[in-house]
Design a protein around this nucleic acid. Sequence first.
RNA 1: GGCCGAUUAGUGUAGCGGUUAGCACGCCACUCUCUCACAGUGGAGACUCGGGUUCGAGUCCCGGAUCGGCUACCA
Length: 511
Amino acid sequence: MDNATDVRVRFAPSPTGPLHIGGVRTALYNYLFARSLGGKMILRIEDTDSQRFVPGAEDYINESLAWLGIGIDEGVREGGPYAPYRQSERSAIYRKHVDELLAAGKAYIAFDTPEELAAAREATPNFQYDASTRLKMRNSLSMPAEEVEKLIADGVQHVVRFKVEPGETVVVNDLIRGEVKINSDILDDKVLFKSADNLPTYHLANIVDDHLMKISHVIRGEEWLPSAPLHVLLYRAFGWEDTMPKFAHLPLLLKPVGSGKLSKRDGDKLGFPVFPLEWHDPKSGEISSGYRERGYLPEAVVNFLALLGWNPGDDSELMDVDTLTSKFSLEHCSKAGAKFDYKKGLWFNHEYLMRTPDDKLAELFVPILKEKGVEADPEYTAKALGMVKQRAELLPDLWEQADFFFKAPETYAEKDVRKRWNKDTPAIMEELIGVLEGIDDMSSANAEKIVLDWIAGKGYHLGNVMNAFRLAVVGACRGPHMFDITELMPREEVVRRIRRAIEVIPVPAEK
RNA sequence: GGCCGAUUAGUGUAGCGGUUAGCACGCCACUCUCUCACAGUGGAGACUCGGGUUCGAGUCCCGGAUCGGCUACCA
């Protein structure tokens, strides 16, 4: 069934907390890569660290990817031919493979306790558990076979370590970085199987699963580059070098200001989310904000993230997921870490908001109206939002911009009052009410013509009259064209607001 | 400390030996205008530093600096 050349990629997060935005980007690149080549996207849960497991994190991962539209072909929820896709459920598979390595003499058993290892590191600067030191440690290479057997029979805790042969140059061919060479001397005898929870470490589980699941390309963060040579050695030890996946190590996401990798604190400090969805930490009770809850559109987040470390090869910036897919290629991924430009993220969302059809916007706006305790006709809401959407970056900004469509102003912007509400204003506004009431057709163009003619005829100051009018209806000098507002808003409401403004706004003593 | 990786305006990036070093965000003007936006036009702003190679280097090589990652019975 499966062809050797089939593209199969995986996103393999650890359920140790909310999915970080950098992880989301890795998932996205895997997804775009797979889709662009007609391949499959696998979601594998790497829960081999029982100490750090966080309940709810796996659901969070699934929900985040679903919200962003990053589709999964095979995974824990989706199932698939290589199930289970949760590593904690695959321990027998790893056990079998590690035994193979043991039998072939490519791995060995070690009894050193954490304390002993700490002591060794203390005693020797740059201590490394490798060919130069392993015979001085307590393991099946340094101890008589009977003693090893006895310790195992007695149930003494032990780990399995990979036996790295020294003096060899290991070459990793990275699709983004080219050839990366290192000497095996600097590699240590990595623990493959832990004693603490009888589960494999990342390195072993990762190689076994990628092989068994027929992964063709491993696209992951740069933090894995240093261990990639070890992984090559593991493929070799298993005799899987011929079908070894190709590697691509993505640059990291960095802090917007200062240096270092992007952290949750940066988001808190500068006011942007670092997680796709809001996260309620089950232990601390702490709540971390998410893109979704903040009012970002998933399409905008995807577009923004795609361009952080990749470019389409031309000047396009606003691209939907199909366009991103068709243009995606690993060759256009950059090598250097990208500072997280959250302001550009805001711009993307603004662009997507402007392009969202008004009725869809009205739907997205329902929760906000509800929160504000306002009931409104969907069609009215759609028209109102359509008028202000070019002024909003995030969904909640729509309320800031369109609130007056749903409730009369209670206060009037002081600065605008000072500038636009003169001693003649109440009388002119009174006159305006009469003019408005005399209009048969309140359509924007018609009402504008009539009112403007009246202003010109009377020789009034256009800016002052219009802004006073705006102040009365909106509560400040902001918003769409006045006659677009009065076309949508019932005339009685407009009149009521002008009357209230005349009543409430104090007339300045002079001028 | 060791190993690996990276380095074009404030930010994201294009460039792949010969360009007035392109685009976008942000910033500043101007235009439009009843306000705020949108839109349009214009502006300021960059090749980390040395050495090489070459007729010619942002582009290739070497070194320094800086930044990042890894260096766990975490992933």
